[in-house]
Amino acid sequence: MVLCLGLTKLRVLDKWCEWNRQVREFLGTHAAPQHRWADTGEEARHLSLSISSSIYLSFVKMAVYNNTWRNNLWLGWFYIQLPISLLVDLLEFIYPTSMYQPEGSTLHFFWKAKQWYIETYKDPIVQWTAETASGHDSWMGLFLHFELLFLVPTTIYGLYRLGVQQKGTRGTDELLFFVYALEIAFTTLVCVHDTWYWDSNVYTESIKNTLRWQFYAPFVIVPLIGAFDMGSRLVARLNAAEEAAEDKKTQ
């Protein structure tokens, strides 16, 4: 689908260039020699250039915003990711204990759910804190800062861009979401890699596999697919821009 989109853009550019060339040839060969450069000929040439430029600008305007159906999948991802970040991953990192530990507090439900997960799977990554860090896992603090300062703002922007404005993605959006997806995939992959070094006396192979493939793997695979999607959009834009630049040089 992405490849077809890129090829379609290139075909439209090719047709525009061919049409522009044919109009110029027609005006140049059908005008009488003595009047070829007369005022009427010049006006016709300017008119043809104006029309062709308008068509080209219309195409460029349409190509600026990418309104593919895959934007809905991205929007769904953003809706899922935001509460996970704010109410699970960053719960103890950004909120005071009074907001989640006491019974009946605002975020107590999410704290209880997280505690159940920790008690069930003993996931050391989810229960990491700066106070309990053992040294080798200090990278978790860096990842939490990344999530707070980059992932959360980007997720909110994605919801606004695709859910509120509903204009599709521009080239800058696609570059941002490309980096965003790679960051999620990479940081989660580090967590997957870390599971192979957990103490087997504490974490059984069954628990490790459950964490790897049921909880961690989706946050590697899905973002990688998203990165491929945004990367393909960027490649299509670059190819179209290069083709347009080459056509401009030959005119």
Rank of each mutant, 00 (worst) to 15 (best):
Asn71Glu: 03
Trp37Ala: 06
Ser48Thr: 06
Glu131Tyr: 08
Asp14Thr: 11
Asp247Glu: 14
Glu174Ala: 15
Trp139Val: 05
Gln251Leu: 12
Glu92Met: 06
Leu175Gln: 11
Thr250Asn: 08
Ile207Tyr: 05
Ala227Thr: 13
Tyr216Ser: 04
Thr97Glu: 03
Leu3Met: 14
Thr172Val: 07
Gln81Ala: 14
Phe143Trp: 12
His108Arg: 15
Ile221Ala: 13
Thr195Pro: 02
Asn66Val: 07
Thr195Ser: 03
Gly158Val: 00
Val222Asn: 02
His46Cys: 14
His108Ala: 06
Arg170Cys: 13
Ser54Trp: 10
Gly135Ile: 08
Lys167Leu: 04
Leu189Gly: 06
Ser54Thr: 13
Val2Ser: 15
Trp69Pro: 04
Leu238Pro: 09
Arg21Lys: 13
Trp196Thr: 14
Leu107Ile: 01
Leu142Gln: 12
Ala32Ile: 01
Ala227Gly: 04
Pro102Ile: 00
Gly163Trp: 13
Leu148Ile: 05
Ile94Met: 09
Ala181Gly: 02
Leu159Phe: 04
Trp196His: 09
Arg21Tyr: 08
Trp196Leu: 10
Leu148Ser: 05
Tyr157Ile: 01
Arg45Ala: 03
Glu103Asp: 10
Pro33Ala: 03
Thr210Pro: 00
Pro124Trp: 02
Met140Thr: 08
Ser58Met: 10
Gly171Val: 15
Arg237Gly: 11
Lys249Asn: 02
Asp123His: 13
Phe150Cys: 06
Trp111Leu: 00
Lys61Trp: 04
Thr68Gln: 07
Thr132Arg: 04
Gly104Ala: 02
Gly231Val: 08
Val179Arg: 10
Leu148Lys: 14
Leu144Phe: 04
Phe146Gly: 07
Glu243Ile: 05
Cys191Ala: 05
Leu73Gln: 04
Val23Tyr: 09
Trp69His: 08
Glu103Ser: 11
Gln166Cys: 13
His35Met: 08
Glu174Ile: 15
Met140Tyr: 09
Trp37Leu: 14
Trp196Asn: 10
